[in-house]
Amino acid sequence: MFDGRASGRPTSDTDMTTATLDPELRPALFDYLLRLGDDALVLGHRLSEWCGHGPYLEEDIALTNLALDCVGQANGLLGLAAEVEGAGRDADDLAFRRDALDFRNALIVELPKGDFGFTVARQLLFSAYAHLLYEALRESAFEPLAGIAAKAFKEARYHLRHSSEWLIRLGDGTDESRQRAQTALDDLWMYTGELFEKDDTLRTLVDAGLAPDPRALEAPWRERVEAVVSQATLTLPEDDFMLTGGRSGRHTEHLGHLLAEMQFLPRAYPDAVW
């Protein structure tokens, strides 16, 4: 996916750190790190809403583990974003002191958690994308991002395995679980296109070898998702109408409510520590 770059991850002379980063790449890289960090943060928050509400104890713990993985990724990615921005902000500032219009997550991660079928279907669709993305990002010419990606890739692979196995069991389970899983896939489908869009930010970073081309991820993503969905005896929607907007701050009504809850404490009690 990185044209003209050797595969493998030994550091080379062309690798960049925050200090050696081409200043012209900074705005695009900051924007991109916000996208990655916000995806992880918002999805992590949605998953954390299952804490104490899981269908049974073991799955409650599993969902909370996924949430913690995501929030951990967000911490690293937003911390790096703040470093690249160089404006004296840190990961907490970016997570807790931005409003919905400044968030750059894809719409799919901000949708309410829904029933268990919806949460599983979203996790499958997103993790199938995230594991391909982080696999490729391990080769990023921006060294600190490649480092975060190496860890995130392992986590995303487990998220994909867990959500795949659940979707198969829900789809091929009872009439009700099957119907709920299919409804979830139908409802989520129009939010998947946004993950593979290529705009100016991505064109800049792809050309510089910092990010993989999202369009190159779509075919392997679809192949993976189709394999799981067909094993689950479910069907992927044919509809190709896709919603978009999250990457430029145009969000659904749900993100504001999520942020109100997530950001309440640090905003009500600035600089609170525990």
Binding site: Y56, L57, E58, E59, I61, A62, N65, R161, H162, E165, R169
Partner: peptide, 17 residues
């Protein structure tokens, strides 16, 4: 121990717990 419907889910639950 964990509760699970089958071996794969038992392994995943064991991993998480």
């Amino acid at each position: 121990n964990v509760h699970a419907s089958d071996a794969e889910m038992a392994l995943q639950n064991a991993r998480d717990v």
